[in-house]
């Protein structure tokens, strides 16, 4: 993949990167930093991508690493009562708060699967945990979300 094609692939993933970064960081400033660092690091590590079909999963993994790095560095603690104000509000604040109330371990795979359409295998590769664990976490996430929303 040449530089131009690579750059286009990264830009194509912007919305997905934001949604996943927001799921982890819930702050637009941090999301911006994570996305920028991920885009840079992806180019540095481009030789580690051996099959273009996995570009999205591979980039997601890099982004998640950057998000965790930011979490460590900035000591962010986001309580439900102190949800950061995004530049644009979610359309459904009730659902948004319910989603944010989930622990990250449940929230992230749920968003990756149900919103981003990633398969269990792609999520397992991105999060470096087993598919059996992914299945269980997504099921529990859905159950807790439903209970939270009283579906």
């Amino acid at each position: 993949m040449d530089k131009q094609a690579f750059a286009e692939r990264v830009v194509e993933q912007t919305d997905r990167m934001y949604r996943i970064a927001w799921t982890l960081l819930r702050n637009d400033d941090d999301c911006r930093d994570a996305m920028q660092e991920a885009a840079l690091r992806a180019w540095e590590k481009r030789y580690t991508l051996r099959e273009e079909a996995y570009f999205a999963t591979w980039l997601t993994r890099i982004l998640i690493n950057e998000c965790h790095s930011i979490q460590r560095k900035r000591k962010r603690v986001v309580y439900l009562e102190e949800v950061a104000e995004p530049a644009v509000q979610p359309r459904d604040m009730t659902l948004s708060l319910a989603l944010q109330a989930l622990p990250e371990k449940l929230r992230l795979p749920l968003v990756m699967h149900s919103l981003e359409g990633m398969t269990y295998d792609e999520i397992a590769q991105a999060l470096r945990i087993s598919k059996a664990t992914i299945t269980g976490r997504i099921q529990r996430a859905k159950q807790r979300l439903k209970k939270e929303l009283e579906v």
Binding site: D15, Y18, D28, P86, V88, Q89, D92, L115
Partner: peptide, 21 residues
């Protein structure tokens, strides 16, 4: 449950950050 409505739209500053990178 449409999770897309639970997450904001991508703000311009994030798009610009990726383009800059």
């Amino acid at each position: 449950i449409d999770l897309r409505s639970a997450i904001p739209e991508t703000p311009d500053m994030c798009r610009d950050a990726v383009l800059q990178a």
